[in-house]
Computed example of a mutant assay.
Amino acid sequence: MRSRKSTEARKEEIVRAALTIVEQSGLDTLNINDIASEIKLVPSAIYRHFKGKEEIVAALIAFADKRLKHNVSQAAALDGSVISQLKLLFELHVKLLREEAAIPRILYFLLNSARDPELKANMLSVVGFYTQQVKELLLQGQEKREVSLDLDISAAAMLFLGMVQPLAILSEVNQEVLIECPPELWHIYQRAITI
């Protein structure tokens, strides 16, 4: 007989299964039956924890938010220069792409879809918060004279995110991109913000 899992453990299992499916097939094909099949449950067992697909997608967004916030807190806790904190944040973001390839797929799908404006707004809020954290690090860098005082902080924060987007897209074809390209991307970015 199968042992009962706690509600939190079951929800996490459902989110993990959904991430696997999104990574393999995309967000638009995600459905309750496939999630149930992935974790060897009946669909009604999924509905005990989530009302439907939209709640599961909201949980996926919350998962992405939690991971990004964790990365920000790790970078902020690093002793050393702001440049080293930004570098760590970039490296953690690339690591997240390697570990959770579904996250960019969720982002791109929601940004290009008009089906659920609330989910889209939630995802944009996550990205907005992350961008704001990068801006704050860059401002700290200016205060400490590690980052160019002439730097447009908003543009530099967007460029920080912009380094990650092509990696996410190109890694769909070649995972080596996530290993080969980040060091040089970081080198170019660091030179640009410290000139």
Score class of each variant (00 low, 15 high):
F50C: 03
F50T: 09
F50Y: 14
F50I: 08
F50R: 08
G52Q: 04
G52V: 03
G52W: 01
K53T: 02
E54W: 08
E54H: 11
E54F: 08
I56D: 03
V57Q: 11
A58H: 09
A59H: 07
L60S: 08
L60C: 04
A62R: 09
A62P: 06
A64W: 03
A64P: 00
D65G: 13
K66C: 08
R67H: 08
R67C: 03
H70M: 08
N71H: 06
V72Q: 10
S73C: 05
S73F: 07
S73L: 11
Q74C: 04
A75S: 07
A75G: 00
A77Q: 14
A77S: 15
A77N: 13
L78M: 12
D79S: 12
D79F: 00
G80S: 14
G80K: 12
G80R: 14
S81D: 06
I83S: 05
S84C: 00
Q85Y: 07
L86R: 02
K87T: 02
L88C: 08
L88G: 13
L89K: 06
F90S: 12
E91I: 04
V94S: 07
K95Y: 00
K95L: 04
K95I: 00
L96Y: 06
L96G: 05
R98P: 01
R98E: 00
E100C: 05
A101L: 03
A101H: 03
A101D: 09
A102C: 10
A102Q: 02
I103H: 03
I103F: 13
P104G: 04
R105N: 08
I106C: 02
I106T: 07
L107K: 09
L107E: 12
Y108W: 14
Y108L: 14
L110E: 03
L111V: 10
L111C: 10
S113Q: 13
S113R: 10
D116N: 13
P117F: 11
K120S: 12
A121F: 08
A121T: 11
N122M: 14
N122R: 10
M123K: 09
L124Q: 10
S125T: 15
V126F: 04
V126T: 12
V126W: 05
V126I: 12
V127E: 11
V127Q: 11
